[in-house]
Design a protein around this nucleic acid. Structure first.
Lengths: 222, 222
DNA sequence: CTTTCTGCTAAGAAGGGGCTTAAAATATTA
DNA sequence: TAATATTTTAAGCCCCTTCTTAGCAGAAAG
């Protein structure tokens, strides 16, 4: 996933570049609107991250011009203050979301992920003890040997691994994996956890998928 | 942290209530705009979560009226469609952020946390001597080692830590942790205090959970 | 010192949650 | 359309959690 950051303050842009690269994004930086727009129009980005106050073209202008060519590429903009006006203009001119400075990096990440959720993720690999999971190839291995999982089994395992060492509540699991948002009273999760444990052939000492009674499940590294 | 949810669909509102309560928010629900506005104006909330399409007053009207009295309380609104217009009107009338339905609960939580971040600190972590408790992850540590607690044990410890250095009356504890609001004549609390002390392996010099004879208990930092 | 009260602790009963399995419903493939 | 695979529902079982109970120990009061 390629991201273009247009931001004139070197401190912020280098912070963003470094942080996003740690999350396995490819990041380019432009420090003014003119260069930013040129790069953006080259068409090789999956998401734009624009500072709103820029030398050269402003964020609005970049957004307007860019939208003509690329109607679906998400644009996220950074607003300096809590001014509603900026926000409104930004959304009207075609941006998808905004974030106020100062922001927490985790939040920025979450908003980027929301925007990219429709697009297919790049190559991602998760591990849990002897288990490896590749999101792109849709494959899972244990001790190097491939394990055949169905779609839902895979999705559930992926969710647990994305939240490794954190307790995953049943409600969250149902929401993220099954996309059921507003109610739940089913035992599906149990069934799929069961088949996961079976297919992964977890022995007694391999307690990688823990059940947290009354709460949910947790993929835990030893 | 108290949150008011104004939402007419019972499915959604109960889902929100449950989910937010799991994250340790106190949640009230109103199912129409009129009651919602009345409750909101009572002034005892830290954040409003408004559905935009409501019987009675609409989200806009609630926002406008509420803003006159409470200029700084964050308002988050839920929009049904991906219409920029609604969003713009919402932000113009004084809301702080919006989220599109259907949404992922994680994202909603993140946005709520952002709004409350100025009010309250980061993620919720409570400490008591060598004991650490993380509300979001549902985990407790003593001297860095995880301690396995059941739901009720966790809820009780969390309550005591939220009221650290304050005497907690038995009646309050029963109300908050067990949700029993009428009179009580049971020894449950004692039993759970006992198992907490055991599981936390408190030595004689580690008197962090004190008994206040005739009143209740207190988590006390030395 | 004795009595009375309150909290501590252990053991067991009651209840609920999760595991497992099989069968039904749904989706996919030939 | 039939055949197959996947997903979901449902039910019984077992075990963990929760709550009750009761005897005991120690504090407060007389």
């Amino acid at each position: 996933m390629r991201i273009l950051v247009v931001e004139d303050e070197p401190g912020i842009s280098s912070f963003l570049k470094q942080g996003l690269e740690e999350e396995a994004f490819a990041v380019d930086v432009a420090d003014n609107g003119k260069v930013g727009l040129e790069l953006a129009l080259s068409g090789s980005y999956d998401l734009l991250l624009l500072d709103w106050m820029l030398p050269g073209f402003s964020g609005i202008e970049i957004t307007r011009q860019f939208r003509k060519e690329f109607p679906s590429t998400p644009i996220l903009f950074l607003t300096a203050k809590d001014t509603v006006d900026e926000t409104i203009v930004g959304l009207q001119s075609g941006a998808n979301d905004y974030i106020k400075k100062p922001f927490h990096f985790e939040e920025l990440l979450e908003r980027i992920r929301v925007q990219l959720r429709s697009k297919v993720g790049e190559y991602e690999k998760f591990t849990l003890g002897p288990i490896e999971l590749y999101t792109d190839r849709h494959q899972v291995y244990k001790n190097g040997e491939e394990v055949q999982l169905t779609q839902k089994e895979f999705a559930l395992l992926e969710y647990l691994l994305r939240n490794k060492n954190k307790v995953c509540r049943r409600t969250r699991i149902i929401e993220s994996v099954w996309d059921i948002h507003f109610e739940y009273n089913t035992g599906v999760i149990d069934v799929f956890i069961n088949s996961l444990r079976k297919k992964l052939d977890l022995q007694k000492d391999e307690d990688y998928i823990l059940t947290v009674r009354g709460v949910g499940y947790m993929a835990k590294e030893k």
